[in-house]
């Protein structure tokens, strides 16, 4: 079959990008190879491990199982876009509570955690574990990741109490 390029436009970390690509390009490859955003990792490449998790219109998705053309017109946030003027509370939490060892799953774990806290700012430990079900980490045994998310939740509610703002990050 002859290669037919398709034009795709989406917003990635707040910036509009347009590229002509083969329709078979996966979102994760689009981010890494077209845009050079290599923070999003390819782990299992079979929708299991969650290392490739990004936010698509605010929802955590596995970008190895989304075609870039399916993100047409959408807003994508990658680990590079999580940080604003300062570290995102999830990043601070992972830093403070040693939520990583080798770091390979960390971008996906952080994006999944950020999504969880956007849906449920005060999760129980059980809810955190359920929320992270789609992330595989071979180093930490998950204990420190759970603590990191708890730390992030505490930081976020502290910040919202101080500023009176509804949301942080």
């Amino acid at each position: 079959m002859p290669e037919v390029l398709t034009t795709v436009t989406m917003t990635v970390n707040g910036q509009s990008v347009t590229r002509s690509i083969e329709p078979r390009v996966l979102l994760v490859h689009f981010l890494r190879e077209e845009l050079g955003l290599t923070g999003t990792h390819v782990g299992c490449d079979t929708s299991q491990c969650g290392a490739c998790t990004v936010l698509l219109d605010g929802e955590a998705v596995k970008s190895c199982t989304v075609l870039a053309v399916q993100a047409q017109g959408s807003a994508v946030t990658t680990i590079e876009g999580l940080e604003g003027t300062r570290l995102h509370p999830v990043q601070e939490g992972f830093w403070a509570k040693h939520g990583l060892q080798c770091g390979f799953c960390t971008p996906g774990a952080m994006m999944t955690a950020a999504y969880l806290l956007s849906q449920n700012p005060h999760p129980t430990e059980e809810e955190i574990r359920e929320g992270l079900d789609g992330v595989v980490c071979r180093c930490t045994g998950y204990e420190t990741i759970v603590r990191s998310v708890q730390q992030a939740a505490a930081l976020m509610s502290e910040a919202s109490e101080t500023s009176g703002a509804e949301e942080v990050g």
Partner: peptide
């Protein structure tokens, strides 16, 4: 079904 990310898609 699956996990959070899978259910989102």
């Amino acid at each position: 079904i699956g996990d959070v990310q899978v259910r989102n898609r």
